[in-house]
Design a protein around this nucleic acid. Structure first.
Lengths: 126, 126
DNA sequence: CCGTATCCCAATAGATACTG
DNA sequence: CAGTATCTATTGGGATACGG
């Protein structure tokens, strides 16, 4: 134990001091998660797909207020590259493409629920 | 029920379709949470304070690699404005100022733990 | 219907130098 | 030691027009 740091604060088991720091510590892990969901339209898209299941891009474009064609496609690409959603091109004419959450995407929901809970508790605290 | 949307996907109780959307829905709540922790140095600072308890700014500056004086102060101000940390000026000479997590700040930890868990599970999935 | 390519603007962050 | 002030670089987002 570093003698220069004798704090009374006891870190919880899952998040002790050594687990927090360093290149592959908690900071890096959380940062990676946050990067996947950072972007103006990531959350609206993810929640839409979670609520609706597989969905055509034209419907996403219609149901997400103020999003543009370009931004929709761009964010869909990023989410796909991160393995959170899967793209299915039916190869029809006129074009029909649908998106849905992957297992990884579903695995993100507890994080979002947790963040939502924090936000609700926040107003109660002070 | 909208006839154009007959999906088999059943939303969980805490996160059903009506709770996801709209101006005060889950998207807005999660977004607010994310805004509080978005910023290059927010996580390192929060984890530091969580692990170490009350801490002088000079020690934060020393222990967080690559952070500059300016960025440290700037992010500390933002975290304070969001009520996640508390600043204590001891009014001594030479100056001594310390920071620590508030109850709101502590309440953020479950979110960060959840995100960390997701990041670990992520590699196992595919 | 679905996607791409350009160009532009605002927000964020970093380097550096300075003050009580 | 703790904090501020400028200036500049980079990034993310948006408007618009075009293509398969």
């Amino acid at each position: 134990m570093d003698p220069a740091r004798t704090h009374k604060k006891v870190p919880v088991a899952e998040l002790n001091r050594s687990a927090c720091l360093g290149p592959d510590g908690a900071v890096a892990q959380v940062t990676r998660c946050l990067k996947m969901i950072s972007g103006r339209w990531k959350l609206p898209i993810l929640f839409r797909l979670y609520a609706d299941g597989m969905q055509r891009s034209s419907l996403l474009l219609r149901d997400i207020p103020d999003i543009s064609q370009k931004m929709l496609t761009q964010h869909l690409r990023e989410l796909e590259a991160d393995g959170l959603i899967r793209r299915t091109d039916f190869g029809e004419k006129p074009p029909r493409v649908e998106y849905r959450l992957t297992d990884r995407g579903e695995g993100l929901m507890p994080v979002l629920l947790s963040a939502r809970q924090f936000s609700e508790d926040y107003d109660q605290l002070a």
